[in-house]
Amino acid sequence: MLSTKLSKYSIILASNSPRRQELIKSLDIPFTIKTKEVEEIYPKELKHSEITDYLAILKSTPFKNDLKENELLITSDTIVWMHNKALGKPKNYKEAFQMLKELSNTKHKVITSICITNTSFQKTFNDTTIVSFKELLDDEIEYYINTYKPFDKAGAYGIQEWIGKIGIIKIEGSYFNVMGFPVHKLYKELSKL
């Protein structure tokens, strides 16, 4: 099993996201959580998975000098990609409402990158899922934002929450990728170590 294979490593998840913590826990591998602040700014010319790859790597940089030989650091980033632009986390109610209006009655891509860092290597990979929303009514959007406060979520929504249950009509790709962690790809990459 993976936990046996990884027993020589001490795994660190650098994420405050309860969803990512829950998903990595579901792989049945022991890990600890350590986070360091990093300003999530990327060069404007980056597109699509270049953005999430860049940010996942960027999140590993504050740990560079602290990592021990037996430690594996896992960092990641998720964006919603639509109309050739990235939707990150909304700063306020107005931005969240605007994002959900934009996602209404159309499809978008959810892209997550994961970076695995060790003192001797660094590996980055990503996954893309296409999500289709029904037409969301204004009162549905208002209810969701007021009740669930999705300000820590790319694109202002969580697929596992109320809006995902009533609004998403189709997904092509990994459900867990939309939650913020393509666990199938993480499992595959960790299995190669």
Rank of each mutant, 00 (worst) to 15 (best):
N65Q: 14
N65I: 07
D66H: 10
D66N: 11
D66Q: 15
D66V: 05
L67K: 02
L67A: 12
L67V: 02
K68P: 11
K68Y: 12
K68F: 15
N70P: 15
N70G: 04
N70L: 09
N70A: 07
L72E: 06
L72Y: 15
L72D: 00
L73A: 15
I74C: 13
I74L: 13
T75G: 06
S76T: 03
S76Y: 05
D77F: 04
T78I: 05
T78Y: 11
T78M: 10
I79H: 08
I79S: 08
I79K: 14
V80T: 03
V80D: 08
V80C: 09
H83A: 14
H83Y: 13
N84F: 10
N84I: 00
N84G: 07
A86I: 01
A86V: 03
A86G: 07
A86Y: 04
L87Y: 13
G88M: 13
K89N: 09
K89M: 07
K89H: 10
P90M: 01
K91Y: 11
K91L: 12
K91I: 12
N92Y: 06
Y93F: 14
Y93Q: 06
Y93S: 05
Y93K: 11
Y93G: 02
Y93P: 00
K94C: 13
K94F: 11
E95S: 03
E95M: 09
E95P: 03
A96N: 05
A96Y: 02
A96P: 02
A96E: 11
A96Q: 04
F97H: 10
F97A: 02
F97Y: 15
F97V: 00
F97D: 03
F97T: 00
Q98G: 10
Q98P: 05
Q98V: 01
Q98I: 01
M99G: 10
M99A: 09
L100W: 04
L100R: 00
K101M: 09
E102I: 04
E102C: 13
E102G: 07
L103D: 00
L103A: 02
S104L: 04
S104Q: 02
S104T: 00
S104P: 06
N105L: 03
T106V: 01
T106Q: 14
T106H: 05
K107I: 02
K109W: 10
K109N: 09
K109D: 09
V110M: 09
V110C: 08
V110Y: 12
V110T: 08
V110F: 06
I111E: 00
I111C: 05
I111P: 05
T112K: 02
T112W: 14
S113A: 12
I114K: 06
I114G: 08
I114E: 04
I114L: 08
C115T: 06
C115R: 02
C115L: 03
I116H: 03
I116P: 06
I116V: 15
I116G: 04
T117M: 11
T117K: 10
T119D: 10
T119F: 07
S120C: 13
S120F: 14
S120D: 08
S120G: 14
F121P: 04
F121A: 04
F121W: 12
Q122Y: 00
K123N: 11
T124V: 13
T124E: 00
T124G: 06
T124K: 11
T124F: 05
F125Y: 08
F125R: 01
F125M: 01
N126S: 07
N126F: 13
N126V: 01
D127W: 08
D127H: 08
T128M: 10
T128F: 12
T129R: 06
I130L: 13
I130W: 10
I130Y: 14
I130K: 12
I130F: 07
V131S: 04
V131H: 05
